[in-house]
Amino acid sequence: MTVLMQQTTTALNGQADAMVPETAVITRIQYEAPDIATYTLSFTDDHIREQYQFLPGQFNMLYLPGIGEVAISISSDPGQPGTLLHTIREAGNVTGALAKLKKGATIGVRGPYGSAWPVESAEGKDLIIVGGGIGLAPLRPAIYHVIRHREKYGKVTILSGAREPGDLLYPDEYDAWREHGIEVIVTVDRADKNWRGNVGVVPMMFYKMRPDGRKTVIFTCGPEIMMRFVVYEALARRIPKERIFVSLERNMKCAVGFCGHCQYGPFFLCKEGPVLSYDRVEPFFSVEEF
């Protein structure tokens, strides 16, 4: 059995002080759902804009002076690092203030941080990408990567779930993904009569797939409860723990392992995470209030 290695990079931040952000301008705002928008960011400094690179699954710290800083995953194509997209839901003080910003506004950005989806070690395997709600955002760079290198992967399935059809992320792109020989299964928890797609929680969609446990890799991101049941369904289909990757969320203040907030047992989720294989997090996955 091959052990998939996590890919990590350190911050590419040019500043000697990792906590000091660079400035970036919001060049485009695209509304995805009533409380979700995708922001296109462009670094003010030409050199940084040209040098900046990230791996799928990594995140940036976005800073609004006077309001605060928040960790947001990157949702754009790692093959086009100059165009930096973040899909953000209005949920707290910082994201609430971001939602009030207009095109042209300047914010602070530092990153990228954290571990990545192991897209390279998953080559040659079947891949199931499971995103729940806004959890699809950090998976999208992996999807773009796979599309770019489609021939290197076996069967690829994307499972996108949300509470209601209006909450689904990136629905306009599903057909384009399908054109690259990717099966896209979409499901919602509830819907009215106008919805013609699947209704049922994300983990139940595993009953519609027949993954080959010997050669399948899973990437999943979404509410922790959802990921827990995705893991159970995957294990029931004999997909080994070390080939199931989850992206975990904790409070993050510094993103470089100094502030201690994102600790998850031995892991700093800002460094060793957010993407971790299930065999590493299993001892803590079901511990209450961990």
């Binding site: 906590m19 002076p65 006077g66 309001i67 605060g68 800083e69 203040k253 510094c254 100094f258 502030c259 201690g260 907030h261």
Partner: peptide, 25 residues
Amino acid sequence: FCSDVQDVSDLTGGKTERVRVWDSC
């Protein structure tokens, strides 16, 4: 070593200091 960060702004909002403070689990 756990810390938090706080923004200290003047009321007019022009200048902000980002201050790291000791925090605790």
